[in-house]
Amino acid sequence: MGVTQTMLEAEQRVSLRAGAREPARRRRKRKGWVPYVMLSPLVVLIAAFVAYPVGSVVYYSFQNYNIVEPFLNGFAGWSNYSTMLRHDPLFWSSLLFTGKWVVTEVVLQLILGMILALIMNEAFRWRGFTRAAVFAPWAVSGVLTTTIWLLLYDPQAGIVNYLSNIGLAPRGFAILADTHTVFWGAVLAELWRGVPFFAIIILADLQSIPRELIEAANCDGANAWTRFRWVILPHLRDAVILSTLLRCVWEFNNVDLLFTLTNGGPGTETTTLPLYVARQAIDNHNFGYGAALTMAGFAILFVFSMIYLKLSKFGASTGYRT
């Protein structure tokens, strides 16, 4: 698996930094109950709160299950699924919007994050401070991001008002209430919080490129672009492929921002599939139908991940790594 590889790599990096110490490979061979006891809290928690719920989602998706209207509860057969696929236009429109949202966000975050990481990898004064400032939005929650961008976007009190004073925007223009601008309004807010993710991961990987490689490229007369294209980019390959996948999964599932910023609106303009699930669960208490939507989400994520890893030929690269 990809994550293992990256983590192993990270460990190697850490152990190299700690003075090229050899990793202690000799594990104590005492077999017995001790490791199982130590692992039991982990195993119990994962079994009870991850494995069992995943199983029960499958079960609920075949049930009518509404905690507010318990008199209708019972076995439902495939009816949740057939409603979803045949009679629910919001399912298809939310799916389409999810795709648009994930692709836009991940592509823009990757490009900006890459540029930012390349800049932060240079030595300059105040680098520590700049790095903390530039990465800070990463630590901020989706709801807080909403709070901040609501203040910026407000037609009367926001920064938009200053823009219209100098003639850049129509007066009293509500970005989040207009179907033409709400998408980019939400994209910008999520970019603000999301770019540091790629910047941090790519920066970590940039710092692991051996200095000799760059020097050798310079000796061979590489300019900045060739150096980037033929030395740096191949080195980043696996980290970029993996972090892009993780980010797609994460942006797919992330609902905090849209839930609070646009509430899926105006109308249902910005409703993603998981946001639709959350709405079913929180507002309608329609757990059976919500579970069927969840299953659709699982299936899409699974198929997407498989195709993505296959097409990107993850791990099949670069002689000088490992």
């Binding site: 994550v3 719920p53 599932n253 609902v255 699930v277 579970a291 969840t294 699974f302």
Partner: peptide, 24 residues
Amino acid sequence: ALILILLCTQFVPGVMLLIPLFVI
């Protein structure tokens, strides 16, 4: 096997488990 399961949990999102976790 345990390590593999731990890694796979990364693809199980919290939002999707909102409903069963509430029931539990």
